[in-house]
Design a protein around this nucleic acid. Structure first.
Lengths: 114, 114
DNA sequence: CGGCGTCACTTCACTTGGTAAAGTGGTTAT
DNA sequence: ATAACCACTTTACCAAGTGAAGTGACGCCG
């Protein structure tokens, strides 16, 4: 990937900066766990990308996949401890976004008064 | 970008997850400030990408560009306060990387077989 | 029993974004 | 005058993500 594979920041960036990754992690932390639930809450994600991301995240040990032996067989995804270790980063991003980004072209954080 | 423009996490991710962004911010925090210095320390970045990234970051108010009135005219880049607000995220990434990724990537989940 | 819907994906054609390599225009050094 | 340095830009290419559609296993309804 051209960035230093020895550098923990680079390696983390490589994982979390794939599009949708952090959002998938957040949804999983908020309770969504099935493919179609994630698909619905991550509006705009393509099933291909979701599938790819979930697989990569599983390979990284960030999510766990469970095939429930039900009929129809449902698949459930959950965060591992490693996955939960990404949550502080998401928190930081939320803080940054709220502090520096949120709606600079209008109301700050009050309800928009049309 | 298809992700919710109301969501601070999404908006931050949009900025920060462009390739090289965080690494540029880190280099700038570590003192590197000229184009060719960044180019050299970010081994593998193309000048086009660096140029693009620097411009986007400048537009976002994350870096500041200074044209020094020297000969030859040098350009110096520096983090703004907003830019420095990204550093905790980088710290988190370093922690995550050191705790979960660093040098043990193959060994972590080596399944015996199947 | 057949058609319809759901789930967890995969496939395909297309677009976007990053890369490598080279080029630009100005400057200083030899 | 030639070469090298700086801060980029241009060009052509390739990989990753997108939207739309398709797949196969099932379940539900009339």
């Amino acid at each position: 990937m051209a960035v230093d594979p020895e550098c923990p920041v680079c390696r983390t960036a490589d994982i979390v900066c794939a599009k949708w990754t952090l959002l998938v992690v957040r949804e999983l932390d908020e309770g969504r766990s099935r493919f179609c639930e994630l698909e619905r809450s991550l509006t705009g994600i393509s099933p291909r990308t979701l599938s790819l991301r979930l697989r990569e995240l599983e390979e990284e040990g960030i999510v766990e996949r469970q095939q429930l032996p039900e009929l129809p067989p449902r698949t459930e995804y959950a965060l591992t401890d490693k996955g939960r270790a990404l949550l502080p980063m998401i928190e930081d991003m939320r803080c940054f976004g709220e502090r520096w980004l949120d709606r600079e072209d209008g109301a700050v954080l009050s309800a928009p008064s049309a």
